[in-house]
Design a protein around this nucleic acid. Sequence first.
DNA 1: TATTAATAAGTGAACGGTTCATTCATCAAA
DNA 2: TTTGATGAATGAACCGTTCACTTATTAATA
Lengths: 197, 197
Amino acid sequence: MPRIAKAQAEQAIDERKDQIKKAALKIFAEKGLAGTKMSMIAEAAGISQGLSYRYFESKDEIFGLLVEEAIEESRQAIQHIGRLPGSPLEQLRAFTLHLLDEDHKQFFLLVQQALTSEGVPHKAREAIERYSPQDTIEQMIPIFVRGQQEGQFAEGDPYKRLILFLSVVNGLMLQDAKATGMDWTQEVDRLLNILTK
Amino acid sequence: MPRIAKAQAEQAIDERKDQIKKAALKIFAEKGLAGTKMSMIAEAAGISQGLSYRYFESKDEIFGLLVEEAIEESRQAIQHIGRLPGSPLEQLRAFTLHLLDEDHKQFFLLVQQALTSEGVPHKAREAIERYSPQDTIEQMIPIFVRGQQEGQFAEGDPYKRLILFLSVVNGLMLQDAKATGMDWTQEVDRLLNILTK
DNA sequence: TATTAATAAGTGAACGGTTCATTCATCAAA
DNA sequence: TTTGATGAATGAACCGTTCACTTATTAATA
């Protein structure tokens, strides 16, 4: 086979894989591991039931791969916000808008699903422990502390405030994924009110 | 059988039914219809697998009965707040604390589950349509309008504000049911910040 | 270039293991 | 004897996975 044709073939395979993963991510994020059927993924990807198995070992493999990607994403996003310019509030605002952006939203929800579901496959559980969501989240605390020092944020235990805020955002995203066709990006400033004086 | 013994027997039956329903509510609210197994209900109620079937026809019947009760509860709670004394903000504060109270929380979550799950049994779906959650929720709008007129609430579409607020509360309750052992009642005032100026 | 063989991609019905609501033989208490 | 309770057994439905087959693509041959 000529080199070029071979490279093209590999690219085609990667594209298919991406197509399947993208469809799977959408469903997994909303319904969780157990709630997602391979038939749903197939339908969302516009392919037949069996085809996923030409590209992936199993449902668990797909889930595991996605969790790893999602974790990497989250880590980067959180690391990124500390380096953003502007006040703590502006940092958080940018971070939140980033999360609410469609693709990142699904990654974020997937991690939540992996964190709260049971029966998560070995591979995915490993990735989660390696990443230690607890530690990663705690990297955000300094932002809250600075917000309080600068007098923009209300007083109180910064960790609790952080959890409250993340819970609110997470809850909204879950809600959103299911029902309302509401655009939360319009309401981010209202959400941030939870934190300010 | 003497009348008194008969009455006692009936009371015993009702108590058992309540015991089972209470356990079922707890699990249904958290895991939804499909995610709840009869064995979980039995375990939560501290009884054997089979016993529920002496008191109820089926899993679906239990779910249906609970949904009806939950709907009645919600309706009453919402009707009630308009009649509470105090400013709109104080009314909402009382309402929210009421929702977060353990029993009501479970009812509220159950309605959400029934609303967003698929495969909800006929009987329950009927009850939901009869009740029309849309209409009931809209009964809360006047409170928001008044809050704006009196200058306590920020401007903007009252309906959107209402949905935002309910979504936040609902999301928090869902989150709470799964993981964090956090007491949101402490944070209600922060939540209400979403609405105020 | 047209024809054909060979391989890969794709389909969807069928398989089989598992799960789980429901039943029932059995026991205990009243 | 009747009623309450148990928990192992049942069997139907579900769903991840496979596979016999069809269709599209590429390579080989003349």
